[in-house]
Computed example of a mutant assay.
Amino acid sequence: MKTILVVDDEPRTREGVRKTLEAWSSGRYRIETASSGVEALVWLQEHEANLLVTDIRMPEIGGLDLIERLEDMKNPPVVIVISGHPEFDYAQKALKFGVVEYLLKPLDKAKLVQAVELALQREEKIHRIERMEKLVDPKLMETMEHESAYSTPVREAIRYLDEHLHESVSMRDLADHLHMNASYFSVLFKEQTGLTFSEYLTKQRIQRAKVLLTTTMLPIAEIAERVGYQTARYFVKVFRELEQVSPGQYRNNVKDSAEIIQ
Rank of each mutant, 00 (worst) to 15 (best):
E147W: 11
E123L: 02
M180L: 06
E147P: 04
L165F: 13
D176Y: 06
L118D: 07
A149N: 11
V99R: 13
I80R: 05
E199P: 07
K139Q: 10
V169Y: 05
K109C: 06
I158Y: 08
E167G: 03
A182T: 02
V113R: 01
A91L: 08
L103R: 14
R155N: 07
F97V: 12
A115R: 02
E191T: 04
M144H: 11
L66W: 10
E145G: 12
V99M: 14
L174Y: 00
A157T: 09
E147C: 10
R131V: 02
H85F: 01
D65Y: 13
A94L: 07
G194E: 04
N181I: 02
L118K: 13
V154M: 09
L120W: 12
F185W: 05
I158M: 09
P76D: 08
K109Y: 09
V78H: 06
V79K: 10
A115D: 00
L66V: 08
I80G: 02
R69Q: 12
H177Q: 07
E87M: 01
K105H: 15
G62F: 07
H166W: 14
K96G: 06
M132E: 08
A110I: 15
G84L: 10
F185K: 00
Y102K: 10
A94K: 02
V100T: 06
N75D: 10
V100Q: 03
A182C: 04
H85S: 00
F88S: 00
A119H: 00
R155G: 03
Q192P: 00
P59E: 13
V99L: 15
D108K: 15
T152E: 15
S170F: 05
E142W: 09
L64S: 09
L104A: 08
I80Q: 03
A149V: 11
Y102T: 05
I61K: 11
L188G: 06
V154L: 08
P86N: 08
S83P: 04
M171G: 01
E156M: 10
D173K: 05
S148G: 08
A182Q: 04
G194T: 06
D176S: 05
A94C: 07
D108C: 14
T196E: 04
E117S: 13
Q192I: 08
E163R: 11
D72R: 14
K109I: 09
L103F: 13
K93H: 13
D162A: 10
N75L: 11
D176H: 03
E133T: 07
E133K: 12
L66A: 08
E156I: 09
